[in-house]
């Protein structure tokens, strides 16, 4: 399995933003309100979001080269 983890707060924010964006899009473009786009919307949103969050957290945790030089 691909390594990625989310805090509860980050997970809740991802789900909420996925719902708001999907509902807002669906209100004006009903073509997205179907059983393929709907579930896929959440999976892609959460997967992308969690990977970005994991990468950012990793970058923050890793010491920068300038730290080592000091």
């Amino acid at each position: 399995m691909i390594r990625s983890a989310l805090s509860r707060r980050a997970e809740a924010a991802l789900y909420a933003s996925a719902a708001v964006s999907y509902i807002a899009t669906g209100l004006f473009y009903k073509g997205v309100l179907n059983w393929i786009v709907g579930p896929l919307w959440l999976v892609v949103w959460v997967e992308t979001g969690s990977r970005v969050a994991t990468a950012l957290a990793g970058r923050r945790a890793r010491p920068s080269p300038s730290d080592g030089a000091r």
């Binding site: 399995m1 691909i2 390594r3 990625s4 983890a5 989310l6 997970e11 991802l14 789900y15 996925a18 719902a19 999907y22 059983w35 709907g38 579930p39 896929l40 919307w41 959440l42 999976v43 949103w45 959460v46 997967e47 969690s50 990977r51 994991t54």
Partner: peptide, 15 residues
């Protein structure tokens, strides 16, 4: 990843 798999399980509810 695991968050993506969990989202896959919850996806129908979300929809």
């Amino acid at each position: 990843s695991e968050p993506g798999l969990l989202a896959l399980y919850r996806a129908t509810f979300f929809y």
